[in-house]
Design a protein around this nucleic acid. Structure first.
Lengths: 223, 223
DNA sequence: GCGCGGATGACAGCTTCATGACAGCTTGGC
DNA sequence: GCCAAGCTGTCATGAAGCTGTCATCCGCGC
């Protein structure tokens, strides 16, 4: 799950990025509207966190542009405490949620999870599939009732595959979801590596990750 | 979810009550410290909204009393815009959050939700897990029947971990739970330190604190 | 059988965590 | 007020294990 953070205050952006990173999101930071446009044009995001006060204009312009262009990526707007006008305006222009600064990082994380979950058509964080039990909020994974430990990357990959269950996911897409721009030089072999590691941990769960040569991977129930 | 609003300005109190009522909270209003004490003695609250300027004294006195009595109900303090002294003092005395007047009702609602959610998942103060017996109200800890002394910080950490038993808690989250805004410059290493100290005291209790690298810590029964 | 995309074991680098020692500060007793 | 005791948080050092690369092997599809 890749998130774009459009925020010019370095401290805030990096704190959010670190926190969301732990929660399994891969984050890109754009300190200006121009950067945000560039990022959004290059790749797709599961959600966008958008500050309204930016050095080269208002985030509302960016939001309006994207919506006009038919982009439905969920947007969470960050607003100053007293700018009720901005907040309401942003919602009218298609923002999906807002948070008043200063905000709690947990709140941001919870809301982003809600937004991205809504997109995947899932009602709750917890998913049961075969004998597999995955809770994205608690970062917990069980196979046949037994707790299975998994690393951050493994969980992020599983999350992506489950969110797109039954669909073939191109390797590039998985790559984009796992790594931000700062990790662009990572070899694509890495995806294969993590698929293998995940498969080992999911064995016996009734859930399989199928390989589709030249196309990508698909997670689904066995058989 | 029942909330106590300690506030003498009728307009503000009633507006807040109405707004929170719509958000699903049941509110009691106490315009004086005396009323607040009476209410708090009669029933428990999911959270307390506390104005510091009251006709019969400072809300800080009330807050200090409750904390001394072992009451851990989340308290959100309302302060005037420029009374930094009061704000910091209140946080030191155990307030969980503050809001500067005039505030937006939606913000109050969001913060209360955050406070009560943090507290959720625990019906009573006393928790028994393995041979561990922890009473958050009395701040007492027993392992295998024997009393174990623990410091304030250690107990706070244990409290947080137990309230989120079975869930992986990111270090930031534990940090937020242990330190207020005024301690923002404390190194995150501190969490690791207290985890180590706690582990020593919990050894042999059947309860363990697992490390999940890059994700956080999780408390659960051993095995 | 051949070629190419994928699978997988081994490994080194590096981030993250564990832990003992220590100094500053707070608190409580006198 | 002073002193002692203990709580707190910093630092440094070493361990642990996650991460991604490489090399090699596999097997599908032609």
């Amino acid at each position: 799950m890749r998130i774009l953070i459009v925020e010019d205050t370095t401290d805030v952006a990096e704190a959010a990025s670190a926190s969301l990173g732990r929660a399994g999101f891969a984050c890109d930071i754009a300190p200006t509207l121009a950067d945000a446009r560039a990022c959004a044009d290059i790749t797709g995001y599961a959600a966008i966190v958008l500050d309204l006060n930016l050095p080269d204009g208002s985030g509302r312009d960016f939001l309006r542009e994207r919506r006009r262009a038919g982009d439905l990526t969920p947007v969470l707007v960050l607003t100053a405490q007293f700018s009720v006008e901005d907040r309401v305006g942003a919602l009218d222009e298609g923002a999906d949620d807002y948070l008043v600064k200063p905000f709690d990082l947990r709140e941001l994380e919870a809301r982003l999870r809600a937004l991205t979950r809504r997109e995947a058509g899932r009602a709750e964080n917890r998913v049961r599939l075969g004998s597999l039990d995955f809770d994205a909020g608690a970062q917990s994974l069980r196979v046949g009732g037994a707790a299975v430990t998994a690393t951050r990357r493994e969980l992020a990959l599983l999350n992506l595959l489950i969110a797109n269950r039954g669909r073939i996911m191109p390797k590039e897409r998985l790559f984009d979801g796992l790594f931000g721009f700062e990790n662009a030089d990572v070899g694509t072999n890495t995806i294969e590596l993590y698929v293998a590691r995940l498969r080992k941990k999911l064995s016996g769960s009734g859930v399989v990750i199928e390989t589709h040569r030249g196309l990508g991977y698909r997670l689904d129930l066995d058989g």
